[in-house]
């Protein structure tokens, strides 16, 4: 695997410096191209190939926003641009009133109903009405609003999947499975907050405002990474 720093050094320096570099490290070119680094292992100076992990100081790997010399750098820049464009576009779409009326609000209500149904399996004192989940025992209720319906996390995941170089067949599969994974955890969020609020409002506020926002995004990140690792390399290049 190419060592980014070494390539830049070799390509961007004069012939003399390049020749000097080769003299100092006779196998430098081979090492830079194959991902191997060289290290003396004994008094006789024998050298052994040492696989170097990327992302370390010694071998930082291709720079994410590197020059045209590094195709992976271009791919990362392209990924970031498409990701941001799709993210903002889908979010603006979500904010449109007709979309909210036709899709977001019914989905949010369905989420409350589903949460109520799941909770009622082990707790009979729960009722769901619209986007509200209410305890019949103590009157505590939570209302699922924008930001709590998992749609924003799904949008983030969708933007990442669309931006990733993969065939559409894999993208659609990722979108469907990712939506299910994010919404499944979001159900856990709603139900956990419902019971957390009955126990302690302080804990509810902390989990609601700060913790679950991050956990849902981590869920989306994990889904994306697992999906990306399953995209065939050849298909992604094509």
């Amino acid at each position: 695997m190419c060592d980014g720093r070494m390539c830049e050094y070799l390509n961007g320096t004069s012939f003399r410096r390049r020749r000097d570099a080769q003299r100092l490290h006779p196998r430098l070119h081979e090492g830079a191209g194959s991902g191997a680094a060289w290290r003396s292992t004994g008094p006789r100076g024998r050298r052994a190939a040492i696989p170097r992990p990327q992302g370390t100081r010694d071998n930082p790997g291709p720079h994410p926003f590197g020059s045209r010399r590094h195709p992976s750098g271009n791919r990362l820049a392209r990924f970031a641009i498409i990701f941001l464009a799709v993210q903002i576009g889908l979010f603006a779409l979500e904010m449109l009133e007709p979309v909210r009326r036709a899709v977001i609000n019914p989905w949010t209500s369905a989420l409350a109903t589903l949460s109520g149904w799941i909770v009622s399996v082990f707790d009979a004192n729960v009722a769901a009405s619209g986007a509200v989940l209410r305890s019949l025992a103590n009157g505590f209720a939570v209302e699922i609003q924008a930001g709590c319906n998992g749609v924003e996390a799904c949008i983030t995941l969708a933007a990442a999947i669309v931006a990733f170089p993969a065939p559409w067949r894999y993208r659609i599969l990722g979108l469907v499975l990712g939506f299910i994974a994010v919404q499944a955890l979001n159900l856990v969020r709603v139900i956990s907050l419902f019971y957390l609020g009955q126990w302690s409002m302080k804990a509810f506020e902390f989990a609601h405002l700060y913790l679950w926002q991050a956990l849902i995004l981590i869920d989306a990140l994990v889904v994306f990474l697992v999906w990306a690792r399953h995209v065939p390399k050849a298909a992604a290049r094509g």
């Binding site: 695997m1 992302g55 790997g61 994410p64 065939p232």
Partner: peptide, 28 residues
């Protein structure tokens, strides 16, 4: 937060994602 992590740990993040499309960097 996620983007800052990905940008500042670019090579590692790409490696986690299977090399950003799995394409191997061009051999020098």
């Amino acid at each position: 937060g996620l983007m800052a992590w990905a940008a500042l740990n670019g090579a590692f993040a790409a490696e986690l994602a299977g090399g950003l499309g799995g394409a191997k960097p061009a051999k020098q």
